[in-house]
Nucleic acid binder design. Sequence first.
DNA 1: TTGTACGCGTTATCAG
DNA 2: CTGATAACGCGTACAA
Lengths: 379, 379
Amino acid sequence: MVSGARVLASARVVPGVTATSGARGALVSGRVTMKDVAAALGVSTATVSRALKGDPAISIATRRAVAEVAQRVQYRPSAAARRLRTKSTSLIGVVVQSVGDGYIGEVVLGIQSRARDLGYQPLFFAAEGRADLESQALDVFLSEQVTELIAVSPTGHVLAQAVAEGMRVAVINGDEAVAASLIARVASGADAPSPRLGSRRAPMIKHIAFDDVGAGRLATSHLIELGHRSFAHLRGPQVRSSLLRLLGYRQALTEAGLWPQPVLAAAPLMANREAAVAEFLREATPPVAMVAYDDLSAVAALHAAHRAGWRVPADLSVVGIDDIQLAAYTNPGLTTVAQPKQRLGALAVDAVLDRGDDVPKVTVLDGELVVRESTAAPS
Amino acid sequence: MVSGARVLASARVVPGVTATSGARGALVSGRVTMKDVAAALGVSTATVSRALKGDPAISIATRRAVAEVAQRVQYRPSAAARRLRTKSTSLIGVVVQSVGDGYIGEVVLGIQSRARDLGYQPLFFAAEGRADLESQALDVFLSEQVTELIAVSPTGHVLAQAVAEGMRVAVINGDEAVAASLIARVASGADAPSPRLGSRRAPMIKHIAFDDVGAGRLATSHLIELGHRSFAHLRGPQVRSSLLRLLGYRQALTEAGLWPQPVLAAAPLMANREAAVAEFLREATPPVAMVAYDDLSAVAALHAAHRAGWRVPADLSVVGIDDIQLAAYTNPGLTTVAQPKQRLGALAVDAVLDRGDDVPKVTVLDGELVVRESTAAPS
DNA sequence: TTGTACGCGTTATCAG
DNA sequence: CTGATAACGCGTACAA
């Protein structure tokens, strides 16, 4: 059936065009304002203002009347005027590197929906990791009187600038303070970097972070429990999360008495990761259990295995971390540790809005193992 | 003498700022306003206002002095005040279904970056396809005095509401008017639906759309040129784009004298698509060339082929449409027709901002063939 | 229970 | 070339 359902435009009444009973013709050339509502009822704007926000000092009767008229004439309060008057915004500034990334998109969704529930409107800005754009974002936010800021994996100095401007800020998967805290939380490796919390001058910053160490452990443990004895880790770039996930890998193996095991280093480019895995496979003997830095790396491993004639999961088990959309569509489906992406966003909103202690606080969220087809017990 | 006085004055520090804090421009309580800048220079706020926007009626000397002080005291104009006064916003409302989707993320990126270049700030709202949220989005936009609206694949009646409110709107990959236009553009199939343009009452709507028919043709032509003679099309859900892509498939084959060829229908769920392909392969003989509705469908085909023991591209060539991120990571890499996602967004911004004819206009963007490893000449 | 009056920070108009 | 001044739409002391 080609023609499908065609929805006809439902008859709708355009406000202002139709004559309203007893009310002066409004919005001839402008918008409907409080004055119009007030005039229509023969009351003052003050009364309308109070009634609209449910002030108990206003009689229930007028409150209802006001509400009804406001509704009928499609009154929309001017955000600008209110903002100018009250000096408070219901806007939350959000800086991300790019929204094009599927991962950030999920986080952004979490932010949006939680913010909406709390009556706030997020103002997104994709800074593409460029310092100048980050500054520009801050300018925009400041002009808009935004006082709450959420930064997703910020790169530059936005944070410092933001707190200098007196903003309340929440950081998602942010900086070294978090890393330090995470490492401290694990609290085991004697060779772990000294956990000096960077709380020196970050008075109103809250951190929401994914437990990278835990994810590394979880991925590795899964493999260990499957019965594997021969491992490999495909490292990511020299960033926080990569380091921490490696740490988790090592810890799990150490606790199982299986350490040391190989760690494959590779440049960030996809081709390099694949090459690194290919090279490793050339001298390895199946079965091998591999923990990749992230899902993309895991996919590279999958490809390398395929080219090298290794079967997954028969010869090679692979675990990723993140659970990006792609993970569900690889062949075979990728076992991975999922990040609670939407929750990260939602919690950041809560953190940045929550008035209370302005002491830096770190919230760490656990990953969840998602078992698909890329892992199995060794033959 | 006047300028001398100004220079002297400009050497002074802004009173309000000095009083509260030291040399640092930290604004603890109360922001820096035009009045502060004016006071610091001993001029009126009107002058500052004019100077700041480069009014040639203001002497160059003053303009420079104002700019310098404004810069030094970190003056940021109040968007709210300006908006209240001028009644014009530099905001563009953007409704999408979800940002979590990688595809939309790219489009959004295009919007953001083009808007930024033009001095506009996009206000995103993810309506998740829910009618109530779409209305809410409109409420927010209206409260913010947003007059420009970009809707990405809108579902509900946002469009009608928006134009009823007098907004200028641009639609990306939108509705049936576009579909009709696209079909008209192709202008060949006698059995194509009658191209009645829905321009009945959409006075200020511009459309930006991907050429779905062309994409279908392009994908199919690629396979034809490779020398294939046995084809199959994996259909998508009953939506505009699916119909159009199918149309393109058919046209290309018809022109090559190869029509008819099989069309595989499947429910939207991934598992069903895979099943549909599996069933088809059971009775087909290699080599077969397949055009999938989109990249996700193509991946399903890849999986089905793998399970059925068909080799890609030796036994089965597969082409997708969209070029989502995933396409580059499948095994083998997916040949596909790429949508110019960022350009779609950028053009929508141009369309919605461009004052000129308010006649509905449709811009159609071509896809581009991206050849990877999933297609090859028949053995 | 409701009205009056003022000001938030800007820009536009009218003088000078 | 620049300065007063009014007004944008709203919230809120202060009155009534």
